[in-house]
Amino acid sequence: MKHRSFFWFMLPSALAMLVFIAAPIVSVLIQSVYAPHEQVIKVVESCSIFGCTESTTVDQDATSALRDAEPLGRFVGSQIYTDRNHLATEEIAVAWQEAEGFGDFFSKATNLPFYGAMSFTLTYTAVVTPMAIILGFFIALGVNGLPKLLRGPTIFFSLLPMIVTPLVGALILFWMIDSRGVLGVGLQNILGDPTLSLKASTPMMWVTLIVYGIWSSCPFAFVVYYAGLQTVPQDSIESAKLDGASRWQQTWHIVIPHLVPLTTFMALIKIMDNFRVFEPIVSFNAEAHAQSLSSFIYNDLSGETQLLSSAAATSVLTIIGVVILLSPVLVRTWRDYGNQR
């Protein structure tokens, strides 16, 4: 295709992405080095018969005028990045010096909000991705063995956890595990502890969120593997059978190698999706026990006063995280492309 027609065909899409994805990244970068204006203080001298006293008050008019004139705020450089709510360089340095051993340092660091959010996000991604893929694989094997008639309805119900709005899916589970919900009461009865509440403790909350994650993302793995299973070369299976390979050997030596390329693709998509985990934390009302990077930004933005600069700094750090996470893929794609030419 000629450059000229490529340009015109691409223009609407490229423009949308430039204005609403690329420009906001720049906007976030700029915002993250500005802090809100401090209030303008004025000194008022009030005189009475006993003499004059000076008092300081907030000059509301001047403050709002300044804020209107320069909505970005004042330039502070990297100050927001290094403050306690983000990279917390000072606190980390102190913790490093005082910590007894690596475990102690780690627990001190994850008590800081940003590192806490980071550790949850990474744990979630690292646990949910492989678990969902494995579970999805077994479901696919199972459905593949079903008679044709039953496959359709099975696939229908299996798709639901993935298709349904994340906020809604998480809420449905949240209500069931509520201490008055059907699963919550069930657990209390099984464990014989009527005060048990999954919402009350941090480890329980993490486990619950991860279970939700696996529940909602294994259908994707299932569908991809199920489609992959339809394309397994039947003649290889036949000849393996003739050679006397057992069922396990067939699965292990023919089916699984056939599915490996799908697994890398799927892991990539799932890592991207899990890294942005957000809605379940809102649904589970879990901010006190677990924050992800996304929910951390959301909390800054949805408070009474929007902490734009703080949210912007976290966003920049998150975007850097995404690029680091993606870098192996980017490098590989880049190399593959180079080889093709």
Partner: peptide, 30 residues
């Protein structure tokens, strides 16, 4: 298109695809 820039567009789109939408939202607000 067989040109190199088509590949670049797709690669950049992949990075955009991976970014959590909420990071962009904080850039939109102001």
């Amino acid at each position: 298109s067989a040109y190199r820039y088509a590949f670049w567009v797709l690669l950049i789109a992949l990075v955009f695809r991976a970014m959590p939408p909420i990071t962009l939202v904080s850039g939109y607000l102001l």
